[in-house]
């Protein structure tokens, strides 16, 4: 896949993800794209996506600066830790990672609210964490099957 094609694909993905985020408040629809990029083993592409996603989420959020850094940074760490035990391209891997990220989302928002002395809405937080864990494999599946297979690099 050529560079221009990759950029066009990612631009389309980001636009679609932002529309999903707009319609479902509190969830991150960009995360499946970041996971997909990590699975493709393209560090440079993942770095730029990381920067771009952090800027978008930090700017639109209401938490103190750093929460998006911890969110996407945590995803990268969780992904690489999980690689030691699972095959990265399998659906089971994505499902387990989604569940873990759903829990991580709840923990991170709770933690950041505590740090900045803001009230925590446990009901909303639990609902959004479950929603986050559910929506990651769905978007990931769409993105995975629409992505050209030669995008993946083998180690």
């Amino acid at each position: 896949m050529k560079r221009a094609g990759r950029i066009l694909w990612w631009a389309t993905f980001i636009a679609g993800a932002l529309i999903v985020q707009q319609s479902i408040p509190g969830i991150d629809a960009l995360t499946p794209g970041f996971l997909l990029s990590l699975q493709e083993r393209r560090p440079r592409q993942s770095f730029w996506l990381f920067v771009f996603f952090v800027l978008i989420q930090e700017g639109s959020g209401s938490l103190a600066f750093g929460s998006a850094l911890l969110w996407y940074g945590g995803q990268a760490v969780l992904f690489h830790v999980s690689l030691r035990y699972f095959v990265a391209d399998s659906l089971l891997f994505v499902l387990m990672l989604s569940a873990a990220l759903g829990a991580y989302h709840g923990f991170l928002v709770w933690f950041m609210c505590i740090v900045q002395k803001a009230p925590v809405y446990f009901f909303t937080l639990t609902r959004e964490s479950l929603l986050q864990a559910t929506i990651i494999p769905l978007i990931w599946g769409l993105a995975f099957f629409s992505r050209p297979k030669n995008s993946f690099r083998t180690v």
């Binding site: 985020q21 707009q22 408040p25 509190g26 969830i27 991150d28 978008i56 989420q57 930090e58 639109s60 959020g61 209401s62 938490l63 929460s67 998006a68 969110w71 989302h105 928002v109 950041m112 609210c113 803001a118 809405y121 937080l125 959004e128 986050q132």
Partner: peptide, 13 residues
């Protein structure tokens, strides 16, 4: 110009 948006939007904003 925008409503509550994204995972970091923990409050009604």
């Amino acid at each position: 110009i925008a409503w509550r948006f994204g995972p970091q939007a923990a409050h009604n904003t």
